[in-house]
Design a protein around this nucleic acid. Structure first.
Lengths: 211, 211
DNA sequence: CTTTGTGAAGTAATTCACAGCC
DNA sequence: GGCTGTGAATTACTTCACAAAG
């Protein structure tokens, strides 16, 4: 109901998704939208959508639905789209390279400002317009470029060491693409994305549903 | 308790993770393991681990814990590691390229056998040892290479069309990396991985926890 | 009418806590 | 003693169903 309430974890994880779909509807020139319409597009139950929105106060109008621009403004604000979030990329291998080339900034106000790779020279070089330094200069350059969090796409063996160095610098979070479960201070947020695990989970689901 | 029981969704998603950690312990030469030890490594509550395992019958011994080789054999079997799963990769852009180069097979018995990209010639070419064809030949080559499921790393605008073609071929599943929520027949499994959404969710978590 | 916002009910997942076995 | 497997309790999440508002 009020902003002071605790937002459920499950709701939090849906917020960026809501934002994207609302952006789409706005781009299509839609001015109002009901939870039912959103439900059909997003494949989320309409009651769940209404409940999610209700945690943030009264966003809709009874008998009308939601004003698209209103929602857009609300989510943009809530998801801190006003100011770009600066991200450091640690590990420029196969996956890291994909992130360097993919510019998050376009759609999502997020920007990789600096990258690190053990094969980069100490003095650094430029890949896809982004400076890449040797990890020996992590502390110096992370600070200099004002990164707030890190995408970790290094090998398993260096993952925890990098997390420890990030923790020392008071990094706020890590998107962890390594299979290691990082140990970090309470104050740091870690989001694990393990592509092999997801793929195996999908295969298991497929194999175990003779439907 | 018995294999006939329905395994909770949440448990299913943890199975590949268990498998990986048990592999690690086996490689380290460990012969027995308790739910507590696993808990510390994986950062999952020990009761949750015991409950998860219990859905598959009696895997452990009271007062002893679990036999590592026993667990390893069980998970290898359960996750169908006997036979490699053949996967088609659709869309060889930044992210698709990373998948082509990363050989899932090493650790996870999964293999990208064929790829498709609209920039590839009709007669196909080879990238990282894997044949890449023009999407015009999707049906023909998907069949020929015996793919069972697809990794979808195409642009948003062609995502649903590709899903429709996959559905017509009775593909069993899709790992969907596009932001589109695909509409597919009941029989198909879709796993959505939306990297921008995950990144924004992490940023939201960071910004909204003055702890 | 339509559609929200939300108590209440229903489902799912986690965790407690301990009997039972090694 | 140590540790599993599991009923019971708890917590989290979803969905139903409807009063209230436009």
């Amino acid at each position: 109901m009020s902003k002071e309430n605790k937002i459920p974890q499950a709701t939090t994880k849906r917020l960026p998704l809501y934002y994207r779909f609302i952006q789409n509807f706005a781009n299509d020139g839609k001015t109002r939208i009901s939870s039912k319409e959103l439900s059909e597009a997003m494949k989320i139950d309409p009651a769940t959508i209404r409940r999610d929105f209700s945690y943030f106060g009264t966003l809709g109008k009874k008998g009308y639905g939601y004003d698209v621009q209103n929602l857009l403004a609300f989510f943009s604000d809530t998801l801190n789209q006003a100011e770009a979030t600066k991200v450091a990329l640690i590990g420029v291998g196969n996956l890291g390279n994909a992130f360097l080339k993919y510019n998050f900034r376009k759609n999502h106000n997020t920007q990789i400002v600096v990258a690190f790779d053990s094969k980069a020279p100490l003095e650094g070089n430029i890949v896809s317009d982004i400076p890449v330094y040797h990890p020996d200069r992590l502390e110096e350059m992370y600070e200099k470029y004002g990164a707030e969090l890190a995408i970790l796409t290094v090998s398993s063996r260096s993952a925890q060491a990098m997390a420890d160095r990030l923790a020392k610098m008071n990094a706020k979070g890590i998107m962890n693409f390594t299979p290691i479960r990082l140990t970090v201070p309470e104050s740091m947020k870690v989001m694990n994305i393990d592509l092999s695990v997801e793929l195996q989970a999908l295969i298991y689901l497929i194999r175990n549903s003779e439907h």
